[in-house]
Design a binder for these strands. Structure first.
Lengths: 146, 146
DNA sequence: AAGATATCGTTAGCTGGGCTAACGATCTTC
DNA sequence: GAAGATCGTTAGCCCAGCTAACGATATCTT
């Protein structure tokens, strides 16, 4: 059947497009001076509120020892800080400092701006079509998790 | 203007979708037993024919010493081999072995299949819409290179 | 209440991948 | 033929991933 073959060709193009998109955007991230794992973890902390180290590790799909090191690095740069839990003293909560907020939002702004800039060259109707495509893509990605 | 704001929101969603898409697909790559840099380099060698180490380093946007190590790793696993150049004996050509071809195409098949599978759950019209979106995305990414 | 068990984060030690600096071998140029 | 450029490698650094093992703390059993 032709539908399956279409899906394969599209899958290939989509995969390639995603790779190239992220490769372009990563260049902007370099300006923050943070490595990708640190940037990603910081993002979760900033937007996801304070979390424990274990939660953060799970969110980043990484093992606890790895997250310990990432957090230690971020802490040394003054972007997050550790806080103990009074009820359960095994827990360590990680929260972003104001500097952490600033660095992250500045980086995100750079990145989004670059992409938004490219997007704004599109016609209004094209923008709508792309928006629809992105929505479908999100659904597809969500369905892959199962 | 509202168009700029729309572009920003879309940029954000697109960025996120691309990240999550690649994260899902990378799980399939793990089955190959190869790390991302090795897989990527192998892919260039397989599809881009024999290249020198320096060319490969540039293609992967990596410095020569890094590529030396990646190639050494691939060579130890029997996926590529080094070949000297008779005319210019400073050069080292890297070419894929048949095992290298097999491993790469098998991995690519797994990856594309997973994505194509998710895509094939879409309605025919949705598939067309997504295809249009991907086409636009490719144009957008291409325009960012400049 | 005490002892066994489970959970959380850290440390130790391994691999791999990124970099710069320095080097040996090899062309190329003068 | 000597000087300079180019190619790949080596050495040595840092970061990020993992597993195994541990100490501290909570929780469960009895």
């Amino acid at each position: 059947m032709t539908k399956g073959r279409d899906a394969e060709a599209l899958a290939d193009q989509l995969h390639s497009a995603a790779i190239h998109l992220l490769r372009q955007l990563r260049k902007e991230d370099d300006a923050s001076g943070l490595s990708a794992p640190r940037l990603s973890a910081l993002s979760v902390v900033v937007f996801g509120g304070p979390l424990t180290l274990g939660e953060l590790a799970r969110a980043e799909q990484v093992k606890p020892p790895t997250m310990t090191r990432i957090v230690t690095g971020l802490e040394k740069e003054g972007l997050v800080k550790r806080k103990g839990d009074l009820r359960d003293r095994r827990l360590t909560h990680i929260e972003a400092t104001s500097k952490g907020h600033k660095v992250l939002t500045a980086g995100r702004a750079r990145r989004v701006k670059k992409l938004a800039n490219a997007l704004s060259r599109l016609e209004k109707t094209e923008l709508a079509e792309l928006r629809r495509g992105v929505q479908l893509l999100r659904d597809v990605v969500a369905s892959m998790r199962g």
